Amino acid sequence: MTSVLYDVPGPKAILRNRILGVATVIVVLAVLGFVSYQLWQSGQFEASRWYVFTFSAVWVQIFDALGRTLAAFGLAAVLSLILGFVLAIGRLSEHAWVRVPVTVVTEFFRAVPVLVFMMLLYYGLPVIGVRMPPYWAVVIALMMYNGSVLAEVLRAGIESLPRGQKEAGYAIGLRKNGVMRLILLPQAVRAMLPVIVAQLVVTMKDTALGFIITYPELLYFAKLLGSQQGRPILQSAFIIGGIYIVMCLILSGIAKYIEIRTRRSPKLRAIANAHNPAADDESTLTEAIALQKGAGKHDIGGMPGI
Rank of each mutant, 00 (worst) to 15 (best):
M192F: 01
V114G: 01
R91V: 07
P9G: 03
L70Q: 02
N273F: 12
L115E: 01
R163Y: 13
L39Q: 09
S48E: 15
L32P: 02
S283L: 13
G129R: 00
I158H: 01
Y135T: 05
L161M: 07
N177Q: 13
H95F: 14
V31D: 02
R163P: 03
H275E: 11
I82P: 12
I26M: 09
P304Y: 08
R91M: 10
S3Q: 14
A88G: 07
P277M: 03
N273Q: 14
I254Q: 06
G84I: 00
F108H: 09
Q229K: 15
E159C: 10
A65S: 14
I82Y: 11
I240G: 00
M303V: 14
A222C: 04
N273A: 13
V197T: 09
A141F: 07
R91S: 02
G173F: 08
P134C: 10
L29T: 13
I212A: 04
P162Y: 07
F117Y: 11
M204P: 05
L81Y: 03
G164V: 01
M192E: 15
G74Q: 08
G296P: 08
G241Y: 00
K256V: 09
L285T: 00
S227W: 15
P134K: 06
V153K: 09
G43S: 02
P101E: 07
L185F: 05
Y244S: 03
A77K: 04
I243E: 00
L92E: 01
L75S: 08
L121V: 15
F221S: 00
A88V: 07
V58Y: 06
G147S: 04
A290T: 11
I300P: 06
F117Q: 10
P134L: 10
K12P: 06
Y257M: 15
I26V: 11
I14Q: 14
A57K: 09
F34A: 11
G84K: 01
S42I: 04
P162Q: 02
P113A: 05
P133L: 00
L234M: 05
S93F: 04
L125M: 15
A279C: 12
A191N: 15
Q187M: 10
G296N: 07
A237P: 00
P113I: 07
A47W: 08
E282C: 15
I158Y: 00
L5M: 15
T24A: 14
P162M: 05
I128W: 12
L125S: 07
